[in-house]
């Protein structure tokens, strides 16, 4: 039985995320009834999996995004999403990150926001379409009225800037 404090924290999460997941799904083309079903299932999963959430690895909104994404594939597209399993003996773990990297990870969400906000508008548009429109890249090219090669190079450039913002080798 959940205690009252957890419930009121969850109610606050619901107020924040449910209307946003709803908007996100409808933007991706789900009808309102389908979207509402996926929102409900997402929020129930957020509640049940709350103990698995690790703020050092991802921000809350990133974590909620991945849950909604997977449920949408499952419930609306009726498909499975293959994913790696970090408990699998064949899984190759990341080398132990040095302590400063852990501190850096805690700031990932804020830094990523800054990094994306700094991208040229054209690169931001390409990223937004990849998430919202679920279009093959030739169609993204058509929509933005640019050649396909340009879509690909904008995606590459966007992540090159994001990586350099995080000091990753590119």
């Amino acid at each position: 039985m959940a205690d009252a404090q957890d419930r009121s924290a969850f109610a606050a999460l619901f107020e924040h995320f449910a209307p946003r997941i709803n908007a996100f799904l409808q933007r991706q083309g789900s009808d309102p009834a389908q979207a509402e079903e996926v929102v409900q299932e997402t929020m129930v999963n957020v509640w049940r999996k709350a103990s698995l959430f690790d703020p050092a690895r991802a921000s809350a909104s990133t974590w909620v995004f991945t849950i909604a994404r997977n449920l949408r594939i499952d419930m609306i597209r009726k498909a499975s999403r293959p994913e790696p399993d970090m408990m699998d003996p064949a899984f190759v773990p990341d080398a132990d990150p040095p302590p400063e990297e852990i501190i850096v990870r805690n700031q990932t969400a804020g830094r990523l926001k800054d990094a994306v906000a700094k991208l040229p508008q054209a690169q931001q548009d390409v990223l937004r379409l990849a998430f919202f429109e679920e279009k093959a890249h030739p169609q993204v090219a058509e929509e933005l009225d640019i050649p396909l090669g340009t879509v690909k190079s904008r995606i590459r450039l966007a992540f090159k800037s994001i990586r350099s913002e995080f000091g990753d080798p590119s």
Binding site: R20, N22, E36, R69, L112, F131
Partner: peptide
């Protein structure tokens, strides 16, 4: 995380 940011920034649509 870009997906998470887009989720944060989208105009909410009440249920």
């Amino acid at each position: 995380a870009v997906g998470g940011k887009l989720l944060d920034d989208i105009a909410p649509q009440p249920l």
